[in-house]
């Protein structure tokens, strides 16, 4: 176990918190409570799309390694990234960024929804990918074609 690094631990830059506050309305209701409009945006998105990812950046240009990893997993699974995937760049929408964390009761981004159900973040996606469960889920929802029997994957 590595207890070697007992460097001085940097606090999260306070500027980050200030920026977040500043963007929100003066009543800052959205800090603790998901607004009705954000909730509706999220619910519409996850119920009208089989596969939704709330991420940092875009599929073409993810702004975070974890969001990139999820995009790579979906690409490897054979998801049509243009047609079958709906993404939201939470970096471009501060209310959505805090709203989705509250909606899913999940502290981190990315967040993946399949058929309206919260699946998890990057760690869980990687798990499901490796165990083969993700493929079954995607096939079940018609998001990817089943793998032909005579052509098993390496």
């Amino acid at each position: 176990m590595s207890f070697l690094r007992t460097a001085t631990w940097a606090l999260r830059p306070s500027s980050q918190l200030l920026t977040r506050r500043a963007v929100l309305p003066a009543t800052s209701f959205a800090v603790r409570h998901l607004s009705d409009s954000t909730k509706k945006t999220i619910e519409d998105a996850i119920h009208n799309n089989k596969l939704v990812v709330f991420m940092k950046g875009t599929p073409d240009m993810p702004q975070c390694g974890f969001s990139r990893a999820v995009m790579q997993i979906l690409t490897v699974q054979g998801v049509d990234m243009k047609k079958s995937l709906k993404t939201f760049n939470i970096l471009a929408d501060e209310e959505l960024r805090s709203g989705i964390k509250e909606y899913s009761s999940w502290p981190t981004i990315p967040q993946v929804y399949i058929n309206g159900e919260f699946i998890g973040g990057c760690d869980i996606m990687l798990n499901l990918h490796q165990s083969g469960e993700l493929e079954s889920m995607l096939v079940k929802e018609g998001l990817v074609e089943p793998e032909p029997e005579e052509n098993p994957r390496a």
């Binding site: 999260r12 390694g65 999940w106 502290p107 981190t108 760690d123």
Partner: peptide, 20 residues
Amino acid sequence: HRLVNEALKEQIALVHAFSQ
């Protein structure tokens, strides 16, 4: 993961990235 997120809520809120 939800159990862990709840147990480490204060810590996770302070970090940028957290993988479990």
